[in-house]
Amino acid sequence: MDSPAQLMREWPPGYGGVERVAHALASEWGATVFSFDAQSRSADELDALPVSYPRVVLPASPPLGRLLLPLPSRALWSLLLSRRPLYGHLPSPGVLLVLLLARLLHPRRPVFAHWHCFVAPEPGSKNRLFAAYQWLALRVVPHLTKVITTSPVLAKELIRCGCQPARVAVLPCCLNPEQEKALLELPSRSAKAMPLRVLFIGRLDSYKRLDWLLEALALLKEPWSLAVVGDGPRRRAFEELTTTLFGASSAVTFLGRLDEAEKLAELALADVLVLPSDRSTEAFGIVQLEAMAAGIPSLAFQNKRSGMGWVGQLSGLPWSQQPEELSLVLHQLATSPALRKALSLEARDRYLNLFARKVWLQVLDSLFS
């Protein structure tokens, strides 16, 4: 089979999980990546990552909220009329529309959907729009050649929603070779008795639930520290909550956005990563792979429409993976350096067995050979 052309909503690669997945695939396939450039970055912003494959921006309608649809153009007609395999990244109504049209125009054409996440309810009219999109998407994707998703949890839910098991495949996210090499070279955690060092990496928005992590830490009697990497619209609110819970001299440090070298340094210092997101739109968390490759256990909550809990699940740390038990787990880690050391080794082993680059390439080859 020829290498698939890809279609995505955003431009350029490297900013979010969808873009990083598309970049990883395109780096292997070398085929064109089409996008709608939802953030209007292509005209005046340099690529986040150097790319060796061609990219094309498709003209699109002015955004109505998050709704972005393709406009008629020579590039769009060329994409639709081609017989080359087409690989589209969801969620996106515009991408879904193009996949459907491509399938209708050439029923024998290989057309794939990469199901990154189930959209989560939003307050007000957005909830109805998101629900309508997801209802439509779950009726279109069973008729495509195959649906690729990121975890067995999402695969099970897609099958429950009507996809044929034979047409659903799992391809977890991956790290690039340079990241993987640098992270695997970090030493595993020792069993030295020192305060628990907690790390949070992510956009400071409401659904990331940094407030739940802060409240769980407030219940600990043991010493600890928390490094918060990232920025976003809720940063000031989280900083105010930190002051309310811990006073002016707290053990919480807000570091803002960091470059890759600075982030690597924080991963080298941490004992545990916590990603307390509460929505299915957070479906994998590539930063969990970075943590496990670095020899750090990653805590996330279990959700039947998200693979977050599955990604970092360790047999050496059995817990419900629900918010009400987060403080108990942090207490276990804070009081047992030996447990932290054992989980460090298990986290890296899980990474090497399930998510390492060579494993990802084997799975990719098996899906498209």
Rank of each mutant, 00 (worst) to 15 (best):
M194A: 15
M194Y: 00
M194W: 01
P195T: 05
P195Q: 07
L196W: 02
L196I: 07
R197A: 10
V198E: 01
L199I: 01
L199S: 01
L199M: 00
I201H: 00
G202C: 10
G202T: 04
G202V: 09
R203K: 13
R203T: 11
L204W: 11
D205E: 15
D205T: 14
D205L: 07
S206A: 15
Y207G: 04
Y207I: 09
Y207W: 11
Y207D: 10
Y207F: 12
Y207L: 07
K208F: 09
K208W: 08
K208C: 08
K208M: 10
R209T: 03
R209L: 01
R209W: 06
L210F: 14
L210W: 13
L210G: 10
D211F: 08
D211Q: 12
W212M: 10
W212I: 09
W212F: 12
W212P: 00
L213I: 10
L213M: 12
L214P: 07
L214V: 11
L214D: 10
E215I: 00
A216L: 06
A216Y: 05
A216G: 08
A216C: 07
L217R: 02
L217G: 01
A218G: 07
A218R: 12
A218K: 10
A218L: 02
L220W: 02
L220M: 07
K221D: 12
E222R: 09
E222W: 00
E222D: 06
E222P: 03
E222Y: 00
P223K: 07
P223M: 06
P223H: 05
P223A: 07
P223R: 01
P223V: 05
W224I: 06
S225V: 05
L226Y: 04
L226C: 01
V228Y: 08
V229C: 09
G230T: 05
G230F: 10
G230D: 11
G230W: 12
D231M: 04
D231N: 13
D231C: 08
G232K: 11
G232H: 11
P233E: 15
P233S: 15
R234M: 14
R234K: 13
R234N: 12
R234I: 01
R235W: 02
R235Y: 04
R236L: 14
R236W: 10
R236I: 04
A237V: 09
A237C: 05
A237L: 09
A237Q: 15
F238L: 14
F238P: 00
E239R: 14
E239K: 12
E240G: 01
L241I: 03
T242C: 15
T243N: 07
T244V: 11
T244S: 13
T244R: 15
T244K: 13
F246R: 12
F246A: 06
F246P: 08
G247F: 09
G247E: 03
G247D: 06
G247M: 07
A248F: 06
A248D: 06
A251I: 02
V252D: 12
V252S: 11
V252K: 09
V252E: 12
T253H: 12
F254N: 06
L255W: 03
L255D: 01
G256E: 10
G256S: 07
G256I: 10
R257A: 13
L258T: 00
L258K: 04
D259L: 09
D259S: 07
D259W: 09
D259M: 03
D259K: 08
E260G: 01
E260N: 07
A261Y: 04
A261K: 14
E262T: 04
E262W: 01
K263A: 05
K263C: 05
K263F: 04
K263H: 00
A265N: 09
A265Y: 06
